[in-house]
Design a binder for these strands. Structure first.
Lengths: 333, 333
DNA sequence: GTGAAAGCGCTAACAA
DNA sequence: TTGTTAGCGCTTTCAC
């Protein structure tokens, strides 16, 4: 910057101001400075700027995995909301593991993000402490934590799945199976399974649970689980899955075996992936509005960070309403 | 840090060293310092560290979109390779647009990344200049640029698609159609189309091209394009798609119309998405080894950044060999 | 609208 | 093994 200052015959301070759109610099002076900077191939060093101004321009986010269209959609929503505000997303992948999450949160906090977005409402004690101590806005997403760390943009995974069970019951299903949602990291999946179990019980329905192994859930595992189920003694008349990917795997297994869907077997998934809307038959699913979760989180943070409320007032809870999308795969007989 | 120093009765410098695993500090001193730091809820400020040491610990990467399992896989491979080296990935999304890419590259360079990974080999002139001036290692991926900016980890999209055309020809297809690959941003898609056209010509095959609109390509658009094709005058006997997602959409359209695949219509995609391996029938595709592209890029950068070769020697070109995965959807009659 | 002085929180370089 | 000094490249603050 001082090189530019010399070349332009001004002080470094004026050069600094020339780069800020809202700073008061003579129009001609600014143009001259910017021109010289471009010619010199100068690239602003935000590292130094961040240190001095104590603002990193970062919003950090942890997500379980990128290889999941739902979380990718949330990130897209978040990113679009940040971009306009001149904020940069700093992403970390937890791989569905709260210990990884703790390490990641610590690592991300070292970069002094101005806000932190986490997926899910369950964390290690130390992770909670780190988030609380950071004195920056924190948003938990994709969940409705009992004891939120800060703000919340999410929904009850259990309630959403219960809604799906009701729909299947109303469509005539009596012997249900749930595929996925083991308690090995994916707390949202586990919550969905809980919601399934309690609603199935409440309605007096027969039900079975099939495990899938460690997340992320793949289509192939869904197919394998379905094969296991079909090779067993008692056959369900409807299968609910922790995600649409597993549900599609289930559908393909039915296709391979010549089982009619929904005639002989109803299938439902979760997440409203593109796949659910185009497969033959189309899959009944729950749309959790993944993009909106990101977009609303971004809007919330933009508002908090813009407003000069360093210690934000009351933590807000934005309830997302997951939508039941009924399709061919659960059409009543 | 100076607070911790006071509490521990040492100098700030010793505290600083205590946080570096390889620095020489008395074992007891270090333990004491780390304990005090944890109690005080201190979190290391890498902003300041980065400025002073002129090392950001960032590797920046631009990708067209996260909502694409291929790029997500590449990022995963890259991220895993970085993580162990204490490097952080800084991601930007270009949305398949070189002007966006230019803006993004400039923005990312302000963070002073230690290396830069870009998707594709075509950039605006200014973007090229920025990358060249940055004097950091640059890697172009998913392509084989004619005039590389720096290192390359990729393959020829045209050649890969030509390979697929040969396979279809050998399987008995004579009237081909290619769906996707318009020249509106997705240069890799456009290259695939070029490869298709030149090989189809070379083999003396009839062919048609169907556009899809702006990327990213979705399953639905594949289905729509196929409907358009089927409603036309001349019918192909094989359809090649710019991606597996479009190919799956094509398959569903055939299913809806009762067209037998591969009996009446062969289908092939690109990318080796999970979907291709599980759909009924399974889809013939090209595996570009997306994860490996990321992993090898990461390994390359780790090596360069570890080695004290600030100005790296000869730019390396890592050719990835895309693999033809033949499946049911193109089984010979 | 512009400039001078000071310093953000850490660490390179050197000294002990 | 530990400490001292200076400074990374910006921007805050205050002065003009």
């Amino acid at each position: 910057m001082s090189d530019i200052a010399k070349a332009a015959g001004v002080s470094p301070m004026t050069v600094s101001r020339a780069f800020k759109a809202d700073a008061s610099v003579g129009k001609k002076t600014r143009e001259k400075i910017l021109k010289i900077a471009e010619e010199m191939g100068y690239v602003f060093d935000s590292t130094a700027s961040n240190l001095r101004s104590q603002k990193s321009g970062f919003v950090a986010a942890t997500i379980p995995s990128l290889n999941n269209a739902n979380f990718a959609d949330t990130v897209r929503g978040l990113n679009e909301a940040m971009r306009d505000k001149g904020l940069q997303l700093l992403l970390g992948y937890t791989d569905y593991n709260v210990e990884n999450e703790e390490r990641l949160i610590e690592q991300l906090l070292r970069r002094r993000p101005e806000a932190m977005v986490v997926t899910g409402g369950r964390h290690t004690d130390r992770a909670r402490r780190l988030l609380l101590n950071a004195s920056i806005p924190v948003v938990e997403t994709w969940d409705l934590p009992e004891d939120p760390v800060g703000h919340t943009v999410g929904f009850s995974n259990a309630d959403a799945m219960a809604q799906l069970v009701e729909h299947l019951h109303a469509s005539g299903a009596r012997r249900l199976a749930f595929i996925g949602g083991d308690d090995n990291g994916d707390t949202r999946g586990a919550d969905r399974r809980k919601g399934f179990v309690s609603k199935a019980r409440a309605l007096g329905l027969e039900y079975r649970l099939v495990s899938l192994g460690a997340p992320p859930v793949s289509m192939r595992e869904g197919a394998r689980a379905m094969a296991e189920l079909l090779d067993g003694d008692t056959q369900p008349d409807a299968v609910l899955c922790v995600s649409d990917l597993a549900a599609f795997g289930v559908l393909t297994e039915c296709q391979r075996r010549g089982i009619d869907v929904p005639g002989e077997m109803m299938i439902a998934g979760f997440g409203a992936f593109d796949l659910a809307e185009i497969s033959v038959p189309t899959l009944t699913t729950i749309d959790a509005h993944a993009y909106d979760i990101g977009a609303r989180t971004g809007a919330l943070l933009a508002e908090i960070l813009r407003g000069d409320s360093p210690q934000d007032g009351a933590p807000s809870i934005m309830r997302i309403r997951p939508t039941l999308k009924v399709s061919r795969s659960t059409a009543a007989k």
